[in-house]
Design a protein around this nucleic acid. Structure first.
Lengths: 212, 212
DNA sequence: GTCACGATGTATCGGACCGATACATCGCAC
DNA sequence: GTGCGATGTATCGGTCCGATACATCGTGAC
């Protein structure tokens, strides 16, 4: 999952570790807490070893002076390679079971702007199916096993069931939207309707281009 | 977290591993997938080594015959010890930051029937605070950084924000209920109102008794 | 002027938990 | 009589987290 997220982010521009963490936290804030350095740095090294990213020169402000003295160990800027882009496309397209759990789906969804429509649809439907199953499980427990559980546990299940139903409706709208329209404009009760003018909304057709 | 969940479950009755997993899956179905054996069995051994649970005799149907032949390796039934109960009470009462993340809160909440009211209140308020922070973070991103993000990512944030607002309202009701009433009877739009007659709703006063 | 403090920045280590896998028993349907 | 799904215990490798360490830089308080 981290591989996918990092590869996707670096496709927008080269970054160093700290920056990657910040951007990822902003992009994925809705689905998970800040990613830890304990996973980030080892992952960066793994990706580099695999040849999917490379170290780039750290925009040296050195017009001329202090080229090296204190060993110059500062920020390490990473950059995605051609193989990295290929790997990203592969990770995006192939859907295992982990694609549909909370985190996996969130990460995939966050990169939908770089995903072709058929794959988007497949992932949305897979997610819906998974949530429907969870919902049925909760309904079962609330129905059949209710008297074996205490009031708090039951309340927890009810709240979870509610969240499931809500997410299914959300997915339905996204799917309908995807099938016969364009951008993900789900009608919202509260704030701000549909925005435009973003720098990377997918052009109505395909967005991922293998060829530069 | 697993420690707490297992200790809490075994307080209801002795069980073997497979059963623990099933019960936990039912009880925590709303907040997490089934717990894996890869964590369950090592944890059971750890708890046993610490003296918090012990192996109990496996209700031997041996009226007389086959006392041992094929080494008789079957289900291993675990039982909580006095030290285990003490440990459970301690884990329930002490609240670290992990008490308020999604999983941690869910597990604590699932055992609210064995938690005293003051602790319940503290945990509910801590959780609310945490969710409010997450909500503010999402609002910030949706406000300030909106034009840097694509339409899909924004939609993800909106959905997350919605979930946050909903959970805060839920927590508010639970807190109000807790302060000046009894059981967790949150008014629900859809199905089934308040149940009673469960075998372990906390009596209005305290529920956790150190002394047997 | 200096110096404390928060931000930026890289890095490691132990531990928690998962997913895949292996293997053995039991009841029952075909 | 046999295959198959549920029950049941167990291990292994890998991913990710939380705590920790340490170094630099800008800024505002004193």
């Amino acid at each position: 999952m981290l591989d996918l997220a990092i590869l996707g982010l670096l496709q927008e521009s080269p970054m160093h570790g700290y920056e990657i963490r910040k951007e990822l936290t902003a992009k994925l804030g809705a689905i998970r807490a800040a990613i830890s350095y304990g996973s980030l740095y080892p992952t960066l090294r793994r990706l580099q070893a695999a040849g999917w990213i490379t170290e780039a020169a750290d925009t040296p402000v050195t017009t001329e002076e202090v080229p090296a003295l204190t060993s110059r160990r500062g920020r390490v800027v990473y950059e995605i390679t051609a193989e990295g882009k290929e790997r990203f496309a592969q990770l995006i397209a192939q859907a295992g079971p982990e694609t549909y759990d909370d985190t996996g789906f969130g990460v995939h969804f966050a990169f939908f702007a770089r995903t072709d429509q058929a794959t988007r649809l497949r992932i949305l439907e897979g997610r819906r199916r998974k949530i429907e199953e969870r919902r049925e499980g909760l309904r079962d427990v609330l129905g059949r096993a209710a008297e074996r559980l205490d009031a708090y546990t039951l309340e927890l299940q009810r709240h979870g069931l509610d969240a499931c139903e809500r997410e299914v409706r959300w997915l339905e709208e996204l799917i309908a939207n995807e099938r016969s329209g364009r951008a993900p404009t789900v009608p919202h009760t509260g704030t701000a309707g549909g925005r435009r003018d973003n720098d990377s909304p997918p052009p109505p057709g395909e967005s991922r281009s293998e060829r530069p």
